[in-house]
């Protein structure tokens, strides 16, 4: 219903600001294990360091997530991508876009940055192969003009991984 092309550009609404401040405080008190929020003064873009869980394909690897919040967060999902180099995973494209339903159609304001992070880590941890999605090259080519993953019409891969 709402266009998301301008996500991350328009400044946050009062409601979004207030909610993000509370989420940030909660994160600082109770950070999700394996994640580190890189401190900046930009509430609208969070950069989060992810450490692959020990005993998984991604142990000892570190990645960066970039989370951009739309003006009307949490009515709209944040845009979450891996800053390349993105982890080699069947649901993660080489440009950092992530195929994960809660970031798009299944988003709900009951979710938080922290719960998204945990979903992404569990997606990584349950992976059994290190490979790109089959349509990686075609998809990345289509996104070359800097398209947001939120403009993609996603069909979701199986939920086993």
């Amino acid at each position: 219903m709402t266009s998301s092309s301008a996500s991350g550009r328009k400044t946050l609404s009062k409601i979004a600001c207030n909610r993000l401040q509370k989420e940030l405080v909660e994160w600082q008190v109770n950070p999700p294990a394996g994640f580190k929020h890189k401190v900046t003064d930009n509430l609208q873009r969070w950069v989060i360091e992810v450490n692959g869980a020990p005993g998984t394909l991604y142990s000892n690897e570190t990645f960066q997530l970039q989370v951009d919040f739309p003006e009307h967060y949490p009515m709209e999902a944040p845009q979450v991508i891996f800053v390349p180099p993105a982890p080699l995973h069947p649901h993660i494209y080489s440009n950092g876009h992530i195929c994960l339903d809660i970031l798009y159609d299944s988003w709900s304001p009951a979710m938080t940055v922290s719960s998204i992070c945990i979903s992404i880590l569990s997606m990584l941890s349950s992976s059994t192969v290190k490979q790109r999605p089959e349509d990686n090259d075609r998809y990345v080519k289509n996104c070359r003009n800097g398209r947001s993953p939120k403009e993609t019409r996603w069909w979701f891969h199986d939920d086993k991984v």
């Binding site: 009062k14 409601i15 207030n18 909610r19 509370k22 949490p74 304001p109």
Partner: peptide, 12 residues
């Protein structure tokens, strides 16, 4: 509020 996390709506 479970959506905006505030008790009272902001003055707007």
């Amino acid at each position: 509020c479970g959506i905006c996390y505030a008790q009272s709506l902001p003055i707007d």
